[in-house]
Design a protein around this nucleic acid. Structure first.
Length: 615
DNA sequence: GTAATCACG
DNA sequence: ACGTACGTGATTACT
């Protein structure tokens, strides 16, 4: 047995690394010992994050409590694997920091299904996020084990991930290769593998006490665990990638990128991604650039370039000026380059041996608890064109279905703020922006009137001002100012609720507690954001409720992706109608007297086939 | 590491 | 006192 000792919060803790069958027996004895009760912390070390790629390796599985950890070398062979498997089966409660990752790894590489492990898991990352959802850059503690341990357990808690990166460098390895290549017996690797579970075991009781002290309901904690299980199940299922198509696409985009880069070169721009070069070249052509970025540099983003190229943001000819050929070339080369590298190539790099994309779905990512999707970021695939979404397919014999909530954030606002006349509009089943426009202009309200009132409504949800709303909609500031005044007259409850919520937050340490019990810390200098936080956060909980309802309806295995106000589902072609109706039902409920509802669209095999059906 | 940019809801 | 568009992830240039 190799044994390491390390100080944690005034105690000396022990990390055991079994080497022999007898050592494994000692682990089993410890695990089942009569003196040992309570949950067991669990963690894994692996070769990296690409869980579904062919060469992926599970290296160690760690178990521990507040004083003792056992690092089981899965990679060492069958005896070690049996010991770890037996422990995974036997223990009734596990503590995991960021369970979604270990659930996915153990499901894929240890034969321990998510369905078995998740119901026995408490996730300390979820609990910490419910106490304070902010990232370190936003003034929060963040969700990593190191800063949480330093804050809640021991200011001198080791940076087990950061310090290992230094070890990797000293071994001639990198952040990318180190996790897979560091020798299994490396002392720091094993010590830190063990300390991670010890820290997790110590974190849980502190977090539980804090949640209780601050009145966060256990039901909310439970709800988040169900959502994390559902999103990890989605990751496991993944989406089929049309690899032939993506190879062609990549080549086409490369051609376009090069062609327009060559055009740009003729005007003195060697690198279309260099904003400095572009600004210089445009100025040299006699263009007058006025917009500045936050740090004072000349702005040459798509809006600026499109105007110079006589194009709308959608790429249509404006006939307002003589097009600047450099501006157009830069737009097109950059776009092709971004689509190639961010989408096409990431697809090919992350596709699994099963020919699928298995993105990480972070069930509680944003400070409003919105979900995010990474590796690849499937929530941000271009929607203006089916070129990229076309690459992702429903399961064999299936078609894609997309169901999106109707005006969810406006409905949430009407419900939360108790906006009487807006509720009437929703109860009548009207399009809310037409409803508002007609309240103001009568039956003669035009499409333009609707657009302005829609802009005003969005500003209420975002906490924006007249100038920004005018810029976004293209309306004049005068027209938008009138629309704001009408909005406040028709729906006075919104402003009153905003003031009330800001007051409540100030009275309780700059934290607003949402309708679903979520703690939403506010930035002192932008408390107005509370309206958006409340709307975005409760809208996210509507999506969460929909996911639970979808599982209840027996459709969990059909779920592909959550996209904020939308779910993407795959269904057998012959059942598509039934599934679509079931999803719509799952997304239909009442929120404080406001009907929440969704519309499902049935597409073909590819996600891209849904293009245009709902836009 | 920060800034700028561009994709999404 | 006043007024403020919200939330993400990924890539590339540049220091």
């Amino acid at each position: 047995m190799q044994t390491y000792r390390h100080p944690v919060a005034g105690d000396t803790v022990t990390v055991h690394v079994p080497q022999t069958p007898e050592d494994l027996d000692r682990f089993a004895t410890w695990l089942t010992g009569a003196d040992r009760r309570g949950p067991i912390a669990l963690d894994t070390e692996t070769s990296g994050l690409d869980i579904y790629s062919p060469g992926y390796r599970l290296r160690t599985v760690q178990f521990g409590d507040e004083r003792t950890a056992w690092v089981i070398h899965w990679e060492r062979g069958l005896r070690f694997q049996s010991a770890a498997r037996a422990a995974l089966r036997r223990v009734s409660r596990f503590l995991i920091h960021n369970a979604a990752f270990d659930w996915a790894v153990l499901d894929e590489h240890a034969g321990m299904p998510i369905e078995s492990l998740a119901p026995r898991t408490t996730d300390t990352r979820l609990k910490a996020g419910l106490l304070d959802p902010r990232q370190p850059q936003e003034g929060g503690i963040g969700s990593a084990l190191k800063p949480l341990s330093a804050f809640y357990i021991d200011p001198a808690a080791p940076d087990t991930q950061g310090d290992l990166t230094s070890v990797f460098r000293s071994l001639g390895l990198t952040k990318a290769t180190g996790w897979g290549a560091i020798p299994l017996d490396h002392p720091t690797y094993n010590l830190y593998a063990g300390l991670d579970v010890i820290l997790t075991a110590r974190l849980d009781p502190v977090l539980t006490r804090e949640l209780d002290r601050l009145g966060v309901r256990p039901a909310l904690v439970q709800y988040e665990h169900e959502l994390a299980r559902i999103t990890t199940t989605m990751q496991r299922a993944g989406m089929v990638l049309d690899q032939d198509y993506v190879h062609e696409l990549s080549a086409t985009l490369t051609d376009e990128e090069r062609h327009f880069a060559d055009v740009a070169r003729r005007y003195g721009v060697d690198n279309v991604n260099s904003t400095r070069q572009i600004a210089e070249a445009l100025t040299g052509m006699g263009e007058h650039l006025t917009d500045r970025t936050g740090s004072g540099a000349l702005k040459v983003d798509k809006a600026v370039l499109s105007a110079l190229a006589d194009l709308s943001l959608q790429g249509e000819r404006l006939h307002a000026r003589r097009p600047n050929p450099l501006a157009e070339a830069v737009i097109r080369s950059k776009r092709a380059g971004k689509w190639r590298s961010t989408y096409a190539e990431t697809f090919l790099e992350t596709v699994s041996a099963r020919g699928r994309i298995h993105p990480f779905v972070h069930s509680m990512a944003a400070r409003t608890s919105r979900m995010s999707v990474t590796r690849p970021a499937l929530q941000t695939l271009p929607s203006s064109d089916q070129m990229i979404r076309r690459a992702l397919l429903a399961d064999p014999g299936h078609v894609m279905i997309s169901a999106d909530f109707s005006a969810i954030e406006m409905r949430v606002l009407a419900g939360l703020a108790g906006v009487a006349r807006m509720k009437e509009g929703f109860l009548r089943g009207d399009d809310i922006h037409w409803f508002t426009a007609r309240l103001v202009k009568g039956e003669g309200a035009t499409e333009a009137d609707r657009k302005v009132m829609k802009g005003a409504g969005f500003s209420k949800v975002y906490g924006g001002g007249v100038a920004t709303a005018a810029r976004q909609t293209g309306a004049s500031e005068e027209a938008m100012a009138r629309a704001f005044a009408e909005y406040d007259r028709l729906y006075p409850e919104i402003r009153r609720a905003s003031q009330r919520w800001q007051r409540e937050a100030r009275a309780s340490g700059m934290v607003f507690v949402s309708a679903t019990g979520r703690r939403l810390p506010l930035d002192r200098d932008r408390t107005y954001a509370v309206v958006n936080y409340a709307c975005q956060s409760v809208a996210r909980d509507c999506l969460g409720q929909a996911l639970l309802n979808i599982e209840e309806a027996g459709c969990l295995d059909l779920l592909k992706l959550p996209i904020h106000d939308e779910v993407l589902v795959s269904a057998p072609r012959e059942d598509a109608q039934d599934v679509a109706r079931a999803i719509e039902r799952a997304m239909t409920f009442d929120l404080y007297g406001v009907p929440i509802l969704a519309t499902a669209e049935i597409g073909g095999r590819s996600w891209g086939s849904l293009y245009g059906s709902e836009y």
